[in-house]
Computed example of a mutant assay.
Amino acid sequence: MKLLVVEDDKTTADFIARSFSDEGHSVDCLASGREALAQASASAYDVLVIDRMLPDLDGLSLLRALRAAHVETPAIFLTSLGGVDDRIEGLKAGGDDYLVKPFAFGELSARVSALGRRPPLREAETTLHAGDLEMDLIRRRVIRAGKEIDLLPREFSLLEHLLRNKGRVQTRTMLLEAVWDIHFDPQTNVVETHISRLRAKVDKPFERELITTVRGAGYRIAE
């Protein structure tokens, strides 16, 4: 397996890396949460081993950011924070397992192997495209024809949903549920208003229209 160990204590990191290497695994080690975010987003790993207390970006924030970017690589927290609330917090942040220091390497190895046996997930998408439009999910940036487009958070979420369903009609109800988490019709024009604002930024300044209205059905973004 290919593992990423995110641990700022060099002695611990070296021990983990050496022990997994002796078992035949490929191991990368990083001490920075921000570096790990970039590395885990750009490279495919089988399992992540993450300390919670890291410089510049703590382990919880690191994993939350990865999950928000749809990086679903199995992750185990390896940390000295062992309270019940700490464990719950780690699992809710997107962790798949939680092991408290001090630890036995045999147990860590067994837990990592169990995570590695899970069915492989498709490679995580970090960018979405439609024509000359590109959405960077890590940097939260939208660029069309080389020009950066400034979107509000809800507009970004709406465009992301349309891009993830590129070529498929999205009804008003679908958009309310996916973007606003509303599971009933509030009898407002919130969808129409945001689509109009999104078109003004994404389509109006450019020659080709990407977001189209399918009369009587909903909205669709072109392939």
Score class of each variant (00 low, 15 high):
112 V>K: 02
131 G>T: 10
72 E>W: 11
148 E>R: 12
73 T>H: 01
106 G>W: 08
61 S>K: 15
44 A>S: 11
172 R>H: 12
160 E>L: 11
54 L>P: 00
57 L>K: 00
197 R>P: 01
152 L>V: 10
85 D>E: 15
130 A>F: 10
86 D>M: 03
218 G>P: 05
111 R>S: 10
73 T>V: 14
208 R>F: 14
207 E>W: 06
61 S>F: 01
91 L>M: 13
50 I>W: 05
28 D>F: 08
195 I>L: 14
65 A>N: 06
165 N>S: 13
184 F>W: 11
151 L>H: 02
101 K>Q: 07
178 A>Y: 04
162 L>E: 03
177 E>N: 07
37 L>H: 03
153 P>C: 07
145 A>P: 04
64 R>S: 02
28 D>I: 11
161 H>I: 06
56 D>S: 13
91 L>W: 05
131 G>K: 01
217 A>P: 00
153 P>S: 12
60 L>W: 05
198 L>H: 06
153 P>F: 05
22 D>M: 14
9 D>E: 15
155 E>W: 00
29 C>V: 15
134 E>S: 15
154 R>K: 11
188 T>S: 15
69 A>C: 14
3 L>I: 15
190 V>L: 10
53 M>T: 11
148 E>P: 15
58 D>R: 11
106 G>I: 03
21 S>I: 12
142 V>P: 00
209 E>M: 11
163 L>A: 12
38 A>Q: 13
13 A>F: 08
95 G>I: 05
104 A>C: 09
223 E>S: 14
47 V>I: 02
140 R>D: 08
145 A>K: 12
32 S>H: 09
200 A>T: 15
15 F>Q: 01
207 E>Y: 12
58 D>I: 07
96 D>T: 07
103 F>S: 06
65 A>M: 01
29 C>H: 04
22 D>T: 11
161 H>Y: 15
159 L>F: 02
2 K>E: 08
107 E>R: 13
134 E>I: 10
51 D>T: 04
191 V>G: 02
66 L>S: 04
90 G>M: 08
177 E>Q: 14
95 G>W: 04
5 V>E: 09
72 E>Q: 14
52 R>H: 13
48 L>D: 03
91 L>Q: 03
169 V>W: 05
129 H>K: 14
21 S>D: 10
104 A>F: 09
215 R>T: 07
25 H>P: 04
208 R>A: 14
122 R>L: 11
99 L>V: 06
43 S>A: 13
37 L>A: 12
180 W>S: 02
100 V>A: 11
